[in-house]
Design a binder for these strands. Structure first.
Lengths: 330, 330
DNA sequence: ACTGAGACTGTAACCGGTTACACCGCCGGT
DNA sequence: ACCGGCGGTGTAACCGGTTACAGTCTCAGT
């Protein structure tokens, strides 16, 4: 069994209170006593137990992060943003990822209770009330990327970004612009689709429903979607995928089909993940400040933790990044 | 204040023991009582406190992960591997990253104590005894990528991988092969350098000391190293960087200098990070099973946690991945 | 009617810290 | 000589759970 504070106290001939005071510098302790305690603690290899400490102080100095899964650069960027902000405040990160449905989310949530002072939850397709119901009152929670009215969240302006990209492609002369969507259950995907639709309407583009194909944000679904588009009677001249992974899948499909991007078909993605810059042709994309997304979420949570202030709602803007794949030079 | 077990017990007219039994299914409870407890717990929005639970059970069901920093795809891959393995065992991950020196490492270590059942530590340039000294006896620790004799660790065979790559380049006819090293303080970097040197000696290649340039694993240091090599009187015909980031930096430098890769100079990296495949020309690299590295470390830790068995030492093999940048086709 | 085995439930000690409160001794001020 | 204040220390209650142990009740077996 591990060495406890009582062991140190007994060995050094003092009370636990004094040992505690030494380790927290939370009260006056005579220099001689202090040294003796420090020394016997070292000899015994005593390290204070964080769990026990958390229990009494009712603070854990860690923020929990729940992500839908860890695949893709998007999530690693989020994690980096989160970790950076957490560290800057001298807190710690408790990471958990969830793959399947509400039950697992709930399970993850419950194991986090008591272990964290606040929570950042990214769960594009699970309702916020499920989260609330399984958390004690008063635990600050910030949603990531899901715009639930009345709930603290940090989101990105998916709709504006998608509209901007669509308008950009239209500006290059494209009239038949396809959209590879990200799935009906996903809030981000829905917002991007809405932005695309709005821009199509505003610019009076071809609104053929066949131009919208469903994917699921994976590279292979992008590949499949591209194939579906290639079989259309009248091909689109531009394809706008709801994320970069699908765009890269589509790129592969086009290349395999002997088509040149951007000469034969223009291509654009969303997210601007790091690889976007490295593929050939370099991928035109909508930059989302992923890193900042995570950082901002953490700051919102920690503000709520420390000030007790209510967490608020933030929307981060996106930015068009024009590279080669859309045919606009760059 | 949050709702506790006593609140539920009082409200439901039972004792805390019974409530505990309901939530852990750890004893017989009458169906009526059970329902009543569950219901009042729901109404009160009671969620058990993980910290308190950990304290008595002396188990946290989480493994701690300490990484030197979170930058680069290498670390995100490690995290993914770790998280996957942790989840598979229904544990949780407590993540912490450290940037500067031993003090911070120690601080991070100490805050993890009591919060985790085991620890995966990746710290290429900090001595293992520092870690040991600041952890209670009996806490399983597995080192990642650092081969400290007598200490549980999961490492990759850096030396063999580097030697294999160097030999491969030699096999393509190169006699002057440069190496962009990763810094003297880093164990991985040292092992890779050693592998390179061994292969150079074995193949009787040009062992000009000027061919070894120091970098620090960042893209910009690779760029700088490439510039240094370009200024040599007699240029190398191949450059082998100790990681992919530096190789990509070098690629940029060569391109800026008007050199064609691989026609004018062959290039190879180490790690085989995901982007390696996407850069043009696609980067020849030494594949290291990063994902598996993390996963294996977790399994080693958890085996030690559960069986109480002593954690052991594993070395994972690397694999040569020939793509375009070395001029061997692909 | 009596007994023993279970099923069910409660009491209280404990996990390893923190901290309010009390106590002691010593000092300077009046 | 007396008192208030303060540095230094100890005692014990508490944080929110778990669990050993003991008790009660019911019911089948004899």
């Amino acid at each position: 069994m591990a060495v406890t504070m009582r062991d140190v106290a007994r060995q050094a001939g003092v009370s636990v209170a004094t040992v505690s005071r030494v380790f927290n510098e939370s009260g006056p302790v005579g220099e001689r006593t202090r040294q003796r305690i420090l020394q016997t603690a070292g000899a015994l290899r005593y390290v204070p137990n964080g769990t026990a400490r958390s229990l009494t102080t009712n603070t854990t100095e860690t923020v929990g992060v729940l992500l839908p899964n860890l695949y893709g650069e998007f999530y690693s960027e989020v994690i980096r943003g989160v970790e950076g902000a957490v560290r800057a405040r001298r807190y710690h990160t408790l990471l958990s990822s969830v793959h399947d449905g509400p039950e697992e989310l709930v399970a993850a949530l419950r194991t986090l209770v008591g272990r964290v002072d606040g929570l950042v939850v990214m769960s594009p397709d699970i309702a916020a009330d499920v989260i609330e119901a399984n958390l004690p009152e008063g635990l600050p929670v910030v949603l990531l990327g899901a715009a639930v009215p009345g709930h603290a969240a940090v989101t990105i302006d998916n709709e504006a970004g998608a509209a901007e990209m669509t308008a950009h492609l239209a500006g290059l002369g494209h009239r038949r612009i396809a959209h590879v969507a990200g799935g009906a259950g996903n809030a981000d995907a829905q917002a991007r689709l809405a932005g695309y639709r709005r821009a199509v309407a505003e610019a009076g583009l071809d609104a053929d429903p066949a131009l919208v194909v469903d994917g699921d944000f994976t590279e292979s679904s992008g590949w499949a979607a591209a194939h579906a588009l290639l079989e259309l009677g009248e091909r689109p001249t531009a394809v706008f995928a709801a994320n970069d992974s699908m765009a890269i899948g589509a790129l592969r499909a086009f290349r395999e089909a002997g088509l040149d991007v951007p000469a034969d078909v223009a291509l654009a993605g969303f997210d601007d993940i790091p690889v976007a810059e490295y593929v050939t042709p370099a991928l035109t994309s909508v930059h989302v400040p992923i890193h900042e997304l995570g950082a901002r979420a953490v700051e919102t949570v920690l503000d709520a933790v420390l000030d007790g202030s209510d967490a608020r709602f933030t929307t981060l803007p996106t930015r068009l990044v024009v590279r080669e794949s859309c045919g606009a030079g760059g």
